[in-house]
Nucleic acid binder design. Structure first.
Lengths: 156, 156
DNA sequence: GTCGAAAATGGTTTATAATGGTATATTATG
DNA sequence: CATAATATACCATTATAAACCATTTTCGAC
């Protein structure tokens, strides 16, 4: 059985909380007992990863402090991950609260439709319209790839 | 006896479920006890594979989390396979439910005619008109290939 | 420090959708 | 033409999302 797959459409409630589908809830229960990390992605969605997945993502080289002292770029990167990542626990009713700043980042307004996307290592929460745009981009990329492949085959 | 071959025409019911023919049901029972993965294909159909077939297709390189942290392209790829793949179990009556998003992808509307195509490692569910288009493309490609082969042979 | 307002949290209810099962119509087969 | 097999429509039941409500907590004003 695949984990963290598929799509669900659901709503943020009036208080900015989201209720996961039973499938997602059990995936997170298995993976991390509900201890997750919210993380704002550059793509404009909010990702939810099991805590240890996030720690793997952020596994750092040594001498962090020294690098922080000498590199502005490094400091900016740490700032980005620091500011835009936050621990949460999935409640007994399968809900989490999305902090206001994170809702803004993902254009996930209170009482609006959002889409939950499985990404194999966790999930992403997308604004509906943004997700549709992203699907268009994925489709476009795929059809270009296909055409290219077939054209190449016929040339041989 | 060949598995996952041939074509069936059938209907989605009002709830977006499909009932497989006895032949297909027994193929899936033999291959995976009914544990399948639905996967949306770029060609605009919905494939159904035995779970281990899908896992083979999707075998991953290592250090997934770290790549996800640093590469937008990698994240998009995970998103593509995550969003468009989902586990299902064939019910005791030989039915599976196609999730709404997947129905949209394959233009498989509720209460409409669809075509089940055996693809040797699994099956594909096609919208009737799209399948007819695909057959035309297959024919076109094949005649191009044949001409090419003969032309090449004569040149030598 | 105390009170009040506002927000956050936890839980419950209800409308809706998904599911499992059965009956019936249709098609295939001898 | 009769019978069996199968697809599909229908219905009952269950599960779930989302709205609603109550309680608790936080924060600010007095």
């Amino acid at each position: 059985m695949l984990s963290f797959c598929g799509q669900d459409k659901c709503k943020l409630d009036k208080n900015g909380r989201i209720k996961f589908s039973p499938r997602i809830i059990s995936d997170f229960k298995d993976a991390c007992s509900g201890n997750v990390v919210l993380h704002c992605l550059p793509e404009g969605a909010v990702a939810v990863y099991p805590e240890d997945v996030y720690l793997q993502m952020r596994r750092q080289e040594s001498r962090i402090a020294e690098q922080a002292a000498s590199s502005a770029l490094f400091r900016r990167n740490m700032r980005r991950f620091g500011a835009f990542s936050q621990s949460e626990v999935i409640s007994s009713q399968g809900r989490i609260t999305i902090p206001a700043a994170y809702r803004d980042h993902g254009q996930l307004s209170t009482d609006s439709d959002v889409v939950i996307i499985g990404v194999e290592i966790g999930i992403e929460i997308w604004n509906l319209e943004r997700w549709q745009q992203e699907v268009l981009k994925i489709d476009e990329y795929n059809s270009l790839k296909s055409e290219q492949e077939i054209a190449l085959d016929l040339r041989n």
